[in-house]
Design a protein around this nucleic acid. Structure first.
Lengths: 130, 130
DNA sequence: CTAGACCTTGCCACCGGCGTCAAGGCAACC
DNA sequence: GGTTGCCTTGACGCCGGTGGCAAGGTCTAG
């Protein structure tokens, strides 16, 4: 399987695949003419990468999952390192949610405050003793 | 007030102030020697910018707030454009929270699944009929 | 006169995951 | 031989808000 086919089957681009390779995530043999040649297993690797990227992982976070797959596991999640990353990411997401909630509260406060001020101004413009 | 003083009083850097200026957020007169000269009002503007940046706004989002302050309001939040941005941002934050909740659920599922698989494997290793 | 503490403009670096273009090699078909 | 379509490496761009540095002008105090 050449890079174009893998890209299409994995739903990504050739550029991304080369990028993953330079970052040690995807491996390819080389044919006589220098083309990258992938076996079927890489398809699963790339799909794993894509799925984790979509969830918001960085390439560094994904590395343990790929290693886990290469170690022969059907899922990249079952190895200790992967689980550790999952836990860390879960904590990060929790922190993110908490931060967004705080921001949301702040925004709501500012909104209600702004609207209150506007109405006050409107009343003043229409006359104080109405 | 020169740029260094403004930076210190607003809790930011001179670099940032010049950046805000190139993006039309902060205004400065120039003294005879070419130095930027700020009046007190700019201090409030810069503080507004910083506060909104801290909440996660981009410079473009902040522009209406600055305009609102320059229009003579004590708060940059009371103008219609500002309120519109606040509403939009609130919606964005809500969307972000929702997405993070989905991601969180996904991560929890993967974690429990991974742990279940690991225990299964352990049991198999220890012997099937133990 | 000199040191140093300001100020000026301008440009490179950063982060991350690519997109995109350049310039070229290789394969296959007409 | 020419066209088309794959492949290769390399390098720049992006987004946003700075940090940092260079090379220079300016003001003040000793």
């Amino acid at each position: 399987m050449l890079i174009g086919e893998l890209a299409e089957r994995a739903g990504t681009s050739t550029r991304a695949l080369r990028y993953y390779e330079t970052h040690g995530l995807v491996r390819a043999a080389r044919s006589a003419n220098g083309y990258r040649v992938y076996d079927e297993a890489e398809l699963h690797v790339v799909r794993e990468i894509r799925a984790l990227l979509a969830v918001g992982f960085g390439l560094d976070d994904i590395r343990p999952f790929v290693a886990c797959l290469r170690a022969g596991n059907t899922s990249g999640h079952v190895c200790p390192d992967s689980v550790a990353v999952l836990r860390r990411k879960l904590a990060e997401v929790d922190a993110g949610i908490e931060r967004l909630h705080a921001v949301r509260q702040e925004l709501r406060d500012q909104l209600t405050h702004a609207i209150a001020l506007r109405e006050e101004t409107c009343l003043r413009l229409r006359g104080p003793a109405r």
